[in-house]
């Protein structure tokens, strides 16, 4: 079978190779999943490059955080899956391959539905749930503000917040995204400004002066300041990405006078504070909503494994040049 292999840190198109591996043989407690679709994340690109905090010291490795596929072989002791079942391998299974061989007890059942959409559930879906649940006691009617609102997480957040009665003010770079986000259930959309006071005034107007205690920041750099400036005294900015490529930046006075907290989120920590029952319940909920089309990410393009260099080049583009997530279709 074909699989991508990450052999060194550097230019993603150079340090990843397509290799042939023997067909996997499941141990007693394992299943073999033939992948239909695997999501390519910016975190994959950072790992390839060996960006700060993303270095592997155990290369070569088989990349790919998540995907969806069908069980094609089951180990002798496996009771929860049978051949033909659709399944999500657990985080970090190395899904940029035609097949993965994984433990059955951490594999989750997958519903029928769009394979490209389902391939994004494990990471972005859980991230969105953690952002809504773990940082602020949000009640029905409360508002939150987020930038990068057109990202997969941003779109999931709009839908998941709506269901909980939480209102979203969505900051995007382009006004032509408003209709799409409104259709998802956005309560307000605002075009990002070049300075924080301008954005803050626009958000205030769009939300009718609502109290804002939680701001979600995917942009970093000055984007963090702009989100921070939208918040009330004592508000919290949760950073979960850095599409600007800059460090998060907040002027001292926002911290000092307005008592703003800047904190980071990692979905790994979100998972660690939940037991497996709760995690399974959340993933069932997410899978159902993706299957029904309620949760829908923008897909930028699909690629086969041998097109990996093009896929990586596509994934590093931003905004209008990318328009969504890049997905591998490992078996075509």
């Amino acid at each position: 079978m074909k699989a991508l292999q990450h052999v060194a840190h550097g230019d993603p198109g150079e340090v990843v190779k397509l290799i042939d591996l023997p067909e996997p043989e499941p141990a007693g407690d394992e299943v073999v999943i033939e992948l239909e679709a695997s999501a390519l994340h910016l975190a994959d690109i950072k790992l390839f490059r060996g960006d700060e905090g993303f270095k592997h010291d155990d290369l070569p490795k088989q990349p790919g955080y998540e995907g969806v596929g069908r069980v094609v072989e089951v180990g002798s002791e496996v009771a929860n899956f049978k051949v033909g079942d659709r399944a999500f391998p657990w985080w970090g299974a190395g899904t940029f391959a035609q097949k993965v061989c994984v433990k059955a007890d951490t594999t989750l059942p997958a519903p029928e539905g769009d394979r490209e959409q389902l391939a994004l559930m494990m990471v972005n879906g859980m991230t969105s749930v953690c952002l809504l649940e773990d940082f602020s006691e949000l009640k029905e009617g409360d508002w939150i503000v987020q930038n990068g609102a057109n990202s997969s997480c941003g779109r999931y957040l709009i839908v998941l917040a709506k269901e909980r009665g939480i209102k979203t003010c969505n900051v995007v770079r382009r006004e032509n995204l408003f209709d799409e986000l409104n259709a998802l259930g956005a309560d307000a959309c605002v075009v990002d400004a070049s300075d924080a006071d301008t954005l803050s005034a626009a958000v205030k107007e769009a939300t009718g002066g609502a109290d804002l205690m939680l701001g979600l920041d995917l942009v970093a750099g000055d984007g963090t300041t702009r989100i921070a400036r939208c918040l009330n005294y004592g508000g919290k900015v949760v950073n979960y990405g850095f599409i600007s490529g800059e460090p998060c930046s907040i002027p001292f006075h926002d911290l000092f006078f307005n008592n703003i907290t800047l904190t980071g989120m990692s979905t790994g920590r979100g998972l660690a504070k939940r037991d497996m029952n709760e995690i399974t319940r959340i993933y069932e909920m997410l899978a159902g909503k993706i299957s029904s089309g309620e949760l829908k990410a923008a897909i930028a393009g699909t690629y086969t494994l041998d097109q990996y260099a093009e896929a990586f080049a596509h994934a590093v583009r931003t905004g209008e040049d990318r328009k969504g997530k890049v997905i591998f279709l490992p078996n075509g």
Binding site: Y240, P247, I250, L262
Partner: peptide, 21 residues
């Protein structure tokens, strides 16, 4: 300069930034 906190430090290592008054 504004206070700078790299995103990877904030999220991978759970570092938060607050102001003292």
């Amino acid at each position: 300069e504004p206070c700078m906190l790299p995103s990877d430090v904030a999220f991978l290592r759970d570092i938060r930034l607050i102001g003292f008054y």
